[in-house]
């Protein structure tokens, strides 16, 4: 993005993202920035480094929805750090400000379909902006291809690059994909190895049946059968312990 100059005195005029007025620090002139016909380039910097991204992925693999042995057997085959381009249009439609986000590149990556610009510290993207070694994905869809389908009058439009980690991983011979938002750490997936709830239901079911028998027989036959309720608790706890127990990855066995 080019630098601006104060139209009155010619001094450099810094323009902050998301503002429509700028005041010259030299001559005090207030300038209105008419953004309706220009395209601004913004970037959300990474606030999560590569190690943290791997840690977030590992945390996600250990989550209750994921296959139980996913954390211990998963293999990350590819991890790329990149900036993904999205157009953000702010327009006045029927007197209301409306925000649209449209992809600036065709993609099948998880989470990129609903296209929400993640929360982040929006900065101006120009030649001086550091990308921290991340690849900047170039748009392959032009702004013009969206303009005819948008209603209302423009307030501003911007190309926003947002930070993502693209992860490919293998589990039991199949390959999967995940995307981690490099600003807030949200994990996006389309399909992933999941965990069945049947073992959980079976264990609680067993404790339930023992409790049920204990209660009924305790009343009808002999109070001694109340012991079955306690047996149900211990059987449930013991088996549940097996269900939730984690397989430790081999490398964690190493001594301090």
């Amino acid at each position: 993005m080019p630098d601006f100059q104060c139209p009155k005195c010619g001094a450099a005029l810094p323009v902050k993202p998301g503002t429509q007025m700028a005041t010259c620090s030299f001559c005090g002139t207030v300038t209105y920035i008419d953004r309706s016909s220009a395209l601004f380039f913004y970037l959300l910097p990474f606030s999560i480094d590569e190690n943290a991204a791997k840690g977030i992925f590992k945390r996600w693999t250990a989550g209750p929805a994921q296959a139980k042995d996913l954390e211990s057997t998963v293999k990350i085959t590819k991890l790329t750090k990149e900036f993904f381009p999205v157009f953000r249009f702010r327009r006045t439609v029927n007197g209301r400000e409306t925000v649209y986000a449209k992809p600036a590149k065709g993609t099948l990556l998880p989470g990129m379909q609903d296209l929400t610009i993640p929360p982040g510290n929006i900065v101006v993207y120009d030649a001086k902006t550091s990308t921290g070694g991340a690849e900047v994905i170039q748009p392959d869809i032009t702004l013009d291809s969206y303009l005819p389908e948008l209603t209302g009058t423009p307030i501003d439009q911007a190309l926003v690059y947002f930070p993502i980690y693209e992860i490919s991983y293998d589990y039991k011979g199949s390959s999967y994909q995940a995307v981690i938002d490099g600003s807030s750490g949200a994990v996006y997936t389309t399909s992933s190895p999941t965990r069945s709830s049947s073992a959980y239901i079976a264990v609680m079911g067993l404790a339930f049946v023992l409790g049920l028998l204990g209660g009924a027989l305790g009343i009808m036959v002999n109070p001694i059968f109340f012991v079955l309720i306690i047996a149900g608790f211990f059987a449930g706890k013991l088996l549940a312990g097996k269900v939730v127990e984690r397989q430790k990855p081999a490398k964690e066995v190493k001594a301090e």
Binding site: Y200, V203, M204, G205, L206, A207, F208, V209, L210, G211, L212, L213, G214, G215, A216, L217, G218, I219, M220, F226, I229, I230, G232, F233, F234, A235, G236, K237, L238, L239, A240, G241, V243, V244, E245, R246
Partner: peptide, 27 residues
């Protein structure tokens, strides 16, 4: 993990026991 398995035991056995008591008393 410990409180997860305790939850399974307590939840299963107590709720089973409560219904069992009811059935027993009803009969």
């Amino acid at each position: 993990a410990g409180s997860q398995s305790t939850a399974a035991g307590v939840g299963g056995a107590i709720s089973g026991g409560a219904i069992g008591l009811g059935i027993g008393l009803a009969i």
